[in-house]
Design a protein around this nucleic acid. Sequence first.
RNA 1: GGAAGCGUGGCAGAGUGGUUGAAUGCACCGGUCUUGAAAACCGGCAGUGACGCAAGUCACUCGUGAGUUCGAAUCUCACCGCUUCCGCCA
Length: 430
Amino acid sequence: MLDIQLLRKDIEGIAKRLKQRGFDLDIAEFNKLEAERKKLQVNSEKSKADIRNISKMIGQLRAAGHGIDDEEVGDLMNLSVDKASEEKEWDAKFKLNDAEFTRFLMVVPNLPHESVPTGKDSDENVEVSRWGEPRKFDDFEVKDHVDIGAGLGLDFESAAKLSGARFTVLKGGIARLHRALAQFMLDVHTREHGYTEVYVPYMVNADSMRGTGQLPKFEEDLFATFKNADEKLYLIPTAEVPVTNLVRDEIVPGENLPLKFVAHTPCFRSEAGSYGRDTRGMIRQHQFDKVEIVQMVRPEDSYTTLETLTGHAETILQKLGLPYRKMLLCTGDMGFSSAKTYDLEVWLPAQNTYREISSCSNFEAFQARRMQARFRNEKNKPELLHTLNGSGLAVGRTLVAILENYQNADGSVTIPEVLRPWMGGIEKLS
RNA sequence: GGAAGCGUGGCAGAGUGGUUGAAUGCACCGGUCUUGAAAACCGGCAGUGACGCAAGUCACUCGUGAGUUCGAAUCUCACCGCUUCCGCCA
């Protein structure tokens, strides 16, 4: 959520910046709501003050020995009743306006940071850097992960039987490799990057989803379950949701910042609107595992943190020896809540292209404002903190990348050396 | 699922209808004392929002919501959460 003060101060300027990311802010609607709000709130508060003062006077008279049936007291009581009906009217209108205002604000995306290039869609993202040399496959035909995996325990048919499209069953060594990847990532982030491992619920309430920005706008992307008829819980689309919401409605002591968490969780996404895209293989699934890194920091630190946090995700790719490139997303391609995002794209030889495997974002105070997540600053006052997160990495897609980049002519797959401790020392899947 | 109890400021903990947004203690901040520190003493210290150039004024918040009342932390109802005991259970 954006700071309402900012909108009041410079609605035109804000609209212009939002336009860059393809969002049309309804200025007329805002001005209408704001004019109403001012009148309604002032009048409602004035009526309340009147009632309070009258009641206080009654209290004083009673304390001075006047009875309830005293004329002076009776007059005041009648006056208060009149004021109360006035107040009720103003207040009802104000509450309506307030609800409309919230609805209006909750669907306005974050402002892009000034360093974010302006652009319409992913074609206008900017490549920042590249790491690693894509391997040449001169001596044999490159297979994609579906073909390689077929002989190694990657089973889409069983998954289709159990659940339908966009699910995967892993068996044997490939299941172990999947687990090894997650463990490897967790160990690197906890031991080398200073993150605290957390285990969190995979089902969360609507408040949590609103806190990080998935609701109210993106309900169709989520899976939901029902505890009972009117109590809905959502399956997390990313660990970002439960982990970031750890600080919802909290005031963190300043000296505890930065908070750094890492979590390995499954993620559930309905993938509505992506019918027909990436239907082959396990690139786009309804359920996939991800290791997510999250930080809560002081506002002045968030942009340097975005760089180091992205670096933490890059470390994983480098240790695994997977070539990748780092993309700075343009205004039009960024997520709703983000002020600045880097995507890491891993080289997939079978697709002869780079594909997203990590997304690292600075949300500034956008999520914190929705969550009321604050810290105590130097002046001992509560102040909104900044939140960031990044995939470190998407485990399913990392598995795909390993299978494709480390495939051998005989259909086997070499295990990258750094993973072998988690693989019982074996060197190859075959 | 059954029974009982409890939800007050950063924490602990008073407060059962009236100038209570809330005693007190701890923590925290400033000061006095001290060579320095500790102790002691003095002072300050909730959040959010509105109006205002400002000084400041006002409103809301004692788990959440509704109600009773001229007036609610205090009374009523519903909901949520927590604790304990019993039952069931991975």
